[in-house]
């Protein structure tokens, strides 16, 4: 076989040979041709060496587990995915631990470890979310038309001032609220929605006294929740959305409820 063969071996054949892209028949032909052309065979050998070295050099990168920050769930819909700057780094670290630890939360029981007191409340909040977000006619007991009435009503029933956070900056409008049974005391649930009909609830009730907890994350199927305690109250925000967006909501709620309290003092 020579270069004047009716179907001569071309450079494209040699590349495809190096890259293992020839069918067996063509490959045999190219091998036979290379046997008769040592200079070309040397080039092919060098090309193969480069190929193998490149692959070996870069293989470890692709074998690594995907960093959490590149998970789609941690990115979706977000332009910037950074932990809020004002958080102390310890709180940020605790949040990340909670993210990791809460993965198996759905269905099968409680997240072990400290802070498990938030667990039943998160479950109650998620249950309430599931019950009422699908409600087309009466998702809320009291509509948000005049939100001062809503605030007054909820505050009276809970026996403590209830703050209704403004989440318009996060894209959510207040729909209204309702009272829910929660053991000895009632819980308040506020509902919000966005332009695409995504509904979000803020569940709050008297919680463990004292302390200021970190944000805890839980996911049950497609429902995500952040919970935390602050100044004798427990809060859970719940929505069918991604963690990043929900975290921004939780942060905004936290800032507003704690800000109001400081002003009131």
């Amino acid at each position: 076989m020579t270069a004047s063969d009716p179907r001569p071996v071309g450079e494209d054949d040699l590349h495809a040979f190096v890259d293992g892209r020839l069918d067996p028949g063509r490959r045999a032909r190219v091998e036979a041709w290379l046997a008769a052309h040592p200079e070309a065979a040397a080039r092919v050998a060098a090309d193969r060496e480069v190929r193998e070295r490149l692959r070996a050099r870069l293989a470890p990168v692709a074998d690594e587990p995907i960093p959490a920050r590149l998970r789609i769930a941690n990115l979706a819909g977000s332009r910037r995915m950074r932990l809020p700057r004002r958080w102390p780094s310890a709180a940020a670290a605790a949040l990340l631990l909670a993210l990791g630890g809460a993965a198996g939360w759905a269905g099968r029981g409680a997240v072990p470890g400290p802070g498990a007191h938030a667990e039943p409340m998160t479950q109650a909040a998620v249950s309430a979310f599931r019950t009422y977000v699908v409600e087309a006619a009466h998702p809320v007991e009291v509509r948000a038309d005049g939100s001062t009435d809503l605030v007054r009503w909820l505050s009276a029933r809970l026996g403590r001032p209830v703050t209704v956070p403004d989440l318009r900056a996060q894209g959510f409008r207040l729909m209204g609220g309702r009272l829910l049974p929660a053991g000895d005391e009632p819980a308040a649930m506020l509902m919000y929605d966005d332009d695409r009909g995504t509904r979000l609830t803020l569940y709050s009730r008297a919680g463990p006294t004292g302390g200021r907890g970190v944000f805890r994350y839980a996911r049950a199927d497609d429902v995500a929740a952040f919970s935390w305690i602050d100044a004798g109250m427990s809060y859970v925000v719940t929505a069918r959305t991604d963690e990043a967006r929900l975290l921004r909501v939780a942060e905004a709620v936290d800032a507003q409820v704690s800000g109001k309290r400081e002003v009131a003092r």
């Binding site: 870069l58 990168v61 789609i72 769930a73 979706a76």
Partner: peptide, 17 residues
């Protein structure tokens, strides 16, 4: 969003490489 993760995440190791 879960669909998106199922489709895209398998490509992430190669994109990182």
């Amino acid at each position: 969003m879960d669909d998106l993760a199922v489709l895209i995440e398998p490509q992430i190791p190669a994109l990182r490489r």
